[in-house]
């Protein structure tokens, strides 16, 4: 459904050219959950922003259902690390923010449906600052989904949450994904999160930002953080981040 071909992106930092992304190829199937892991600054967020249409690539193409992506569109929703709910709008107004030019009744219905989906019914009239971090992020997910996008892009959505809330939110997202069957691409630097959520894990290296490996998570056992499958996938992912001589120590530590 979403096809990324030969994507390059360069930035000028203090007059020096930095290769943010190099030769990125990725096919995302409809309904798939893809997680992208990598160091900070490996270009994974840039990749997400290019898919969203907020930035443009230098070389390469992205197509969604064979239509080229040239800018933002309601066929793609996005959730950021900070919830980015507008402080002056209620949760209800925030969730409906992207619903333009549709009938009022229909809009109300969609907003209520999505508030229910993220279990925030009853909080529609609250302002964002009255909500906890986890609840605000749920509202942001509802806003991202309310247009019924083909794909939901999540840019380290739980990075600012505490560890317990993060685990809860991971479960939530998995539930929402199973319920809505929306294609999801989630960027994270948390390998456990990537394994727990993803059907395929895209491992990226930094400078230049390249795809090192795509690791499938096939067995449903692998979703159990205590299982041997989980541990073995984690090892496979970690293997890509360490040089040969470091690996022995790292392997011992996990």
């Amino acid at each position: 459904m979403l096809k990324i071909k030969g994507l390059d992106k360069r930035f000028l930092v203090n007059g020096r050219e930095v290769v943010a992304l190099q030769n990125i190829d990725l096919d995302v199937k409809k309904g798939e959950f893809i997680t992208i892991v990598g160091h900070s600054g490996c270009g994974k967020s840039t990749l997400l922003k290019i898919i969203a249409g907020l930035q443009s690539q230098d070389v390469g193409t992205i197509t969604c259902h064979d239509r080229q992506i040239l800018g933002p569109g309601t066929d793609r929703g996005m959730v950021f690390q900070e919830h980015r709910l507008l402080p002056w709008l209620t949760i209800r107004e925030n969730v409906g923010f992207g619903l333009q030019g549709i009938d009022r009744k229909e809009k109300e219905r969609l907003v209520e449906d999505h508030l229910r989906l993220v279990q925030l019914e009853g909080f529609g009239d609250a302002y964002p600052k009255q909500l906890s971090g986890g609840m605000a992020q749920r509202a942001a997910i509802a806003r991202g989904l309310v247009n019924n996008p083909e794909v939901l892009l999540l840019d380290e959505p739980f990075g600012a949450l505490d560890a317990l809330t993060r685990i809860q939110m991971q479960k939530e997202v998995l539930r929402i994904w199973e319920e809505e069957k929306t294609t999801m691409i989630l960027v994270t630097h948390d390998i456990d999160e990537a394994i727990y959520l993803g059907q395929r894990i895209v491992v990226m290296s930094a400078r230049p930002g390249e795809i090192k490996a795509v690791i499938p998570v096939e067995s449903s056992n692998a979703k159990d953080r205590g299982s041997t499958e989980f541990a073995s996938i984690k090892k496979r992912v970690l293997r890509h981040f360490f040089a040969e001589e470091e690996w022995a120590a790292v392997e011992y530590a996990i």
């Binding site: 249409g53 907020l54 793609r76 929703g77 950021f80 333009q100 247009n147």
Partner: peptide, 8 residues
């Protein structure tokens, strides 16, 4: 940026 996403 959020507003841009929705092409307002």
């Amino acid at each position: 940026e959020v507003a841009r996403l929705y092409r307002l």
